[in-house]
Design a protein around this nucleic acid. Structure first.
Lengths: 337, 337
DNA sequence: TACGGTGATGAAACCGGTTACATAAAGGAC
DNA sequence: GTCCTTTATGTAACCGGTTTCATCACCGTA
């Protein structure tokens, strides 16, 4: 493995000159530059990033903290893949690598320090947090990270933090407006876990939409889920026992909507004839399952790209974290309404 | 940022002793050890991984090369998320981090060197390759990587390489046997892109199953797809024009099966009454789309875990790469057959 | 009492880069 | 011809760890 000193020796120049050839080529004479580059190619020299990181304190790596909820190992964010693809692609274009951080497992370390420590030890230039609202203290501790931090779907504010989120309230409002426009009056909803901010926002927007049409949202028209399919099934069965039965349901997540769909079918009712259904997220299945699930789409690629852009902005100017970004949600009408 | 020298000074010991406290604690006296650990906690010392990597040439990072096909940016492996979760989790348990490598973008660098260079520059201890059969030369060049390399769904052999794959041939055989057992005789198939190894294997196993029942697979009973839904739709429409019409179809991927399903419905035919359908992969949708897609399931979590285990084994003993691992596939019977 | 062995520690070189500062040569102004 | 810039390069310290080798105190033994 050829080092910079080896290359300098072969070229008959100093290591400083070689370093300059790669970092500030404009200050080195054309003749020397070409000679060094040619020799570098010949002996297969390539700079060692660890050494460079050690010297400059910049690693060109962005940490990714994700899936930290040990109560639900392997938790699957329905969009994770789309977001990751967009995020990685946008960061790659800037020459930034994404380091999926394992928690620091030093014995005796307080649990909430695990990610913060991992961040510092590895000299990552910034951190992206993808969380599912578990409010893991090890994740929340990252607000104190000494580097820029961008959170997704998590209200993360601080001198080095910002966050990206979909317009959950607006989406809830879209769902309500759509169902009202379709002529429904008895409308119920299946919420996500309300301590989670997106769940609360979707409910709030939905409620506001109903209120604007002078339709109150009774407590008995609200059932709680946990984002997952089974909880949607259970919640829908609860709603089916209510009198009068709702003619439309807004499920605050597509997975729950699919569960609700199953419950509706099992009850011998039809979609949208007996009950109309609106979901939220627009996961792949929504388009494939008959009769097609009307849903509020999140811009997954936009979220990943926006996260990358926010990160790059903070890396360039750490002093002024950008404002939180809210991406618009859109109504996608399919057969279920 | 406290360094090891700072900590040593405060403790009145040498840096060598401090280093030993963290790396080989058994050789340092109990008294000194406790004093150093206490002081480390007090001043918040934490070792710098870049410096450690520079000195030891071990980074505790595993590179991940993924989604390199620029003809299909953002290509989505239907399992990627499940595999990633399992891989990351298993590696994290060993204290290994996953670095998603961006290609080296040095100007003038031959394209096929981009990932190889990124691997070497970053001192990753090993590489995991998730490819989609695109045969990207930059990916194939990784067989010459100076570090252990584990590939998924890609036949990667070499002195430092091994690979993990599902039993694609066995799965194809399962599909054939199942359809034959259901009494079908006119059976067609929709293949993946045949240059891709998994596609060829699935077809071979399927063909063998038919042959074992003395059913030849006519060329006209084979239609080609590209894994994606639309290609399944197109391929199925081709098959529907054949006389006599097949009564059963094996689509070598679930996404293509879903496309085929749509084509069958549009033709006014019923599943499984008129045409039975078997997929491959067992993606999430398969269970959700009525009447439920019978499919050959891959063990996604098993693939990720096996990749991590193979990687750890090679890190411990780089001299002898483990044999390639083939994970069993299983038949999941649902409503489509 | 001298001696070999053991256990704990320190000094210093090393890993492979970056960069502040010094130096030397060349060019221009007077 | 002298002096001041400008341009190109070199010297050496530094980043924060690891590790080889040497040292030294202490112990039991012959």
């Amino acid at each position: 493995m050829s080092s910079i000193r080896e290359l300098a020796r072969r070229c008959g120049v100093s290591v400083a000159t070689v370093s300059r050839v790669f970092n500030t080529p404009e200050v080195v004479s054309q003749h020397t530059r070409q000679h060094v580059l040619a020799m570098a190619a010949e002996i297969g020299y390539l700079p060692n990033e660890s050494a460079r990181t050690l010297a400059t304190k910049k690693s060109n790596m962005v940490g990714l903290v994700w899936d930290t909820d040990h109560r639900r190992p392997g938790w699957r964010h329905p969009f994770l893949q789309d977001i990751l693809v967009a995020l990685k692609s946008a960061l790659s274009a800037q020459g930034l690598h994404l380091l999926m951080l394992a928690p620091d497992q030093s014995p005796g370390l307080p649990g909430d320090q695990r990610f913060l420590r991992a961040v510092q030890r590895h000299n990552v230039d910034g951190v992206v947090v993808i969380d599912n609202g578990s409010r893991d203290p090890a994740v929340l501790a990252l607000v104190d990270a000494p580097v820029p931090c961008v959170a997704l779907d998590l209200r993360f504010t601080g001198p080095t933090c910002t966050y990206i989120t979909s317009d959950n309230a607006g989406g809830g409002r879209l769902a309500a407006d759509h169902l009202i426009e379709r002529g429904h009056r008895r409308i119920a909803t299946i919420t996500g876990p309300l301590p989670a901010w997106p769940a609360a926002q979707r409910l709030a927007g939905f409620r506001a939409g109903l209120a604007a049409a002078n339709l109150p949202l009774a407590e008995t028209a609200i059932a709680g889920g946990d984002w997952y399919l089974d909880s949607g099934y259970t919640a829908m069965n609860q709603l089916l026992t209510r009198e009068p039965r709702p003619t439309a349901v807004f499920a605050a997540g597509d997975e729950m909507a699919l569960g609700a769909m199953r419950a509706i079918h099992e009850a011998g009712l039809r979609i949208p004839g007996d009950i109309a259904l609106v979901g939220f997220d627009d996961i792949e299945v929504a388009a494939l399952v008959p009769p097609g699930l009307t849903t509020i789409a999140q811009d997954k690629t936009g979220i990943g790209t926006a996260a990358a852009e926010a990160m790059v902005a903070m890396l360039l100017d750490p002093a002024t974290p950008p404002e939180p970004i809210t991406l618009p949600t859109t109504l996608v009408i399919r057969g279920s309404t």
